[in-house]
Design a protein around this nucleic acid. Structure first.
Length: 197
DNA sequence: GGAGCGATGTCCT
DNA sequence: GGACATCGCTCCG
């Protein structure tokens, strides 16, 4: 039986939490249906010390969740079309978070395909490989999910540990950023077919 | 299969 | 007004 990750899981620095989240299950409850996917790619954003992080220039209305307590969803809108899902890390008052970049779909693939406007026969890699894609596949939006507690028993968006352990984790530079491009803060499960890029 | 590029809303300077 | 933690399409080989 999968165990809901507690708030203490997210209390550490984003690079530590990012590694630790690889292989964990994200579950999205929509009415009576459950969608789930395993985290296979993730990036760390370090807060005030990280020029690539949304929190770098201080707290604003948009990024306030990153400065709050750990274990809350930070969902933002990007390029006029897509949402991206992060989870806040570090104690209340300290900015930091992790960006979920790719999932291996586990449950509800037909619904994911429909939400992605793809035929049911579409390759599963097209469902949740990429931060914008996975939000569309799980119907995650800023209006509905920003600021949500992912450690709550009643949350429609949770992260669980089902005992899976990645064989090998590889780090590399983060994707799609223009500042602080050199830091190896992207983490993937080595060899997993659902990693993006 | 890879490079180039347009779509498109929100936030901050 | 510009930048943006993206994606999917076109065009070319």
């Amino acid at each position: 039986m999968a165990r809901l990750l507690p708030r203490s899981f997210y209390l550490d620095s984003p690079d530590v939490v990012a590694r630790r989240l690889l292989g964990k299950l994200i579950t999205r409850r929509i009415d009576n249906q459950k969608l789930s996917g395993r985290i296979v790619e993730i990036e760390a954003y370090l807060g005030l010390d990280d020029p690539a992080a949304h929190s770098y220039n201080g707290k604003t209305a948009r990024n306030a969740v990153l400065f709050g307590p750990p274990g809350f969803a930070y969902v933002y809108f990007i390029y006029g079309m897509y949402y991206c899902l992060n989870v806040s890390c570090q104690p209340d008052g300290h900015a930091g978070g992790v960006l979920i970049r790719a999932l291996e779909p586990v449950e509800g693939l037909e619904t994911m395909a429909r939400l992605r406007h793809l035929p049911a026969s579409a390759k599963p890699q097209l469902l949740t490989s990429g931060p914008g894609r996975l939000c569309q596949a799980l119907d995650i939006t800023r209006a509905a999910h920003n600021g949500l507690d992912v450690t709550s028993r009643t949350s429609p968006l949770q992260i669980l540990d089902d005992g899976f352990e990645p064989d090998l984790i590889r780090s590399s530079p983060r994707i799609g950023i223009r500042k602080a491009v050199e830091h190896p803060l992207r983490f993937v499960i080595e060899g997993n077919a659902f990693v993006s890029g």
